[in-house]
Design a protein around this nucleic acid. Structure first.
Lengths: 230, 230
DNA sequence: ACCAGATCGAGAGCAGTGCTCTCGTTTCGT
DNA sequence: ACGAAACGAGAGCACTGCTCTCGATCTGGT
């Protein structure tokens, strides 16, 4: 084994602590994360932070990658915990896990799915983890189709150029998935994002206190659209 | 007539010019709008701006209100331009108008529907204009129902507490609209928001160049869910 | 065991920000 | 015509991200 030097160990711990403190600040102060405040909280001077992250954006990127992975893991775990032969149950479990994760960490969710800063271009590291939650949804539908529990919609509803685009995406994401079904998966994923964002960003009517029930019903509507068996 | 004084006229023009310059900066620099940069562009010193807007947040709020109204007006106009007896046509027209508006002003859309700054609480002035786009969608469905072209779904699909919540919202928004249909309207509105946000914030797969067709198909799926006649 | 080189934290400093206060000047209502 | 209100400019405060320098500490190879 490589026997990591003391310095390497301390540095790794430092990286983790910086991210932890930054996450704490994120929860209270929102996206306008102050490096100096983080440094102050750690008893350091701001310039010392630059030994660990070359810029504020790099710190944010690190937080984003970890958040994507945490969300993806939560959704995957929820799906894995549901009856494999019950597509609708898996669908609801996955959606609810995403909502629970977001409600518990609104600032981190906002970091992932809020409006991006114009200058900030998502580094390639974030692309993979970002696909994990939608991949779970697609996986549920793929399994249901393979088990003969979901019927493929009529492909004729898709105009040709769109069908070709979707076919290409399906080939990379879930080979064999009919294009019209992939389109419905994307609708479900879009809906899930919209639901959570609306709830988190205060766009749900104040006269709707039963939000968990509302969420369950909305995701159930999308399960209907997907043709998941009841 | 009140014969507005020269000063009042100049002040009104100044307010408009400040907002116009701020909108221009918003388009290039994103949500981190700099008051000093706006002032510089106007040949003023930053402190002079405070004669017109007491704080940066107030300027942003003014821009938000105007943007909400512009988006609402665009959606309403598109709906009004469609055949009143064709719910699906009106639905598509309204959705497309929202998308077109957003694509033409991504920064303003992000201002409206991006992640809110934690400290920033939406003033009451914004609540009314913010309801205009979803109100159009609800109106389309209400009209379709009144014309007997839309069937009300089984209310039994709603758990009781949720049904009661939706009934209260329906009473204020569209009296007589069945709760299950209102839920589908909200699903459509959520979907519309999600679609535009994903497209604008770069979350749509790069291998999907036919975005207008994709958008039309996705909104068509929601029209199916709403039971709009084809 | 030692020493050159890498790594680290502290501090000063720069350019930028939102915002406040003061001070003359201009305009308004009476 | 005059007091009061509105206005623009400027200085200044506290804050930000970030850079650079300067000692102190640790590391790996000899």
């Amino acid at each position: 084994m490589p026997a990591p030097s003391i310095r390497a160990r301390v540095r790794a711990e430092m990286l983790d602590e910086i991210k932890a403190v930054a996450r704490r600040h994120l929860a209270t102060d929102g996206a306008n994360l102050s490096l100096r405040a983080v440094a102050r909280d750690m008893g350091m001077v701001s310039s010392a932070l630059y030994r660990y992250f070359p810029s504020r954006d790099d710190l944010l990127t690190a937080l984003i990658v970890e958040a994507y992975d945490a969300l993806g893991a939560a959704v995957e775990a929820a799906d894995a915990g549901a009856d494999r032969l019950d597509p609708r149950g898996r669908w609801h479990a996955a959606c609810r896990a995403a909502r629970d994760w977001a409600l518990a960490r609104p600032a981190e969710y906002a970091l992932l799915y809020g409006s991006p800063v114009p200058g900030y271009a998502a580094p390639a590291d974030t692309l993979g983890p970002a696909m994990r939650p939608p991949a779970v949804l697609v996986g549920i539908v793929r399994d249901g189709l393979a088990a003969g529990r979901i019927a493929a919609p009529d492909p004729g509803e898709l105009p040709e150029p769109l069908r070709a685009d979707l076919a290409e995406i399906a080939a990379a994401l879930a080979p064999g998935l009919p294009e019209a079904l992939l389109a419905r998966c994307m609708a479900g994923w879009t809906q899930l994002f919209g639901l959570i964002s609306f709830e988190l960003f205060g766009r749900i009517d104040r006269t709707l206190p039963h939000r968990a029930e509302y969420f369950a019903h909305q995701t159930d509507l999308m399960a209907d659209l997907l043709g998941l068996p009841r």
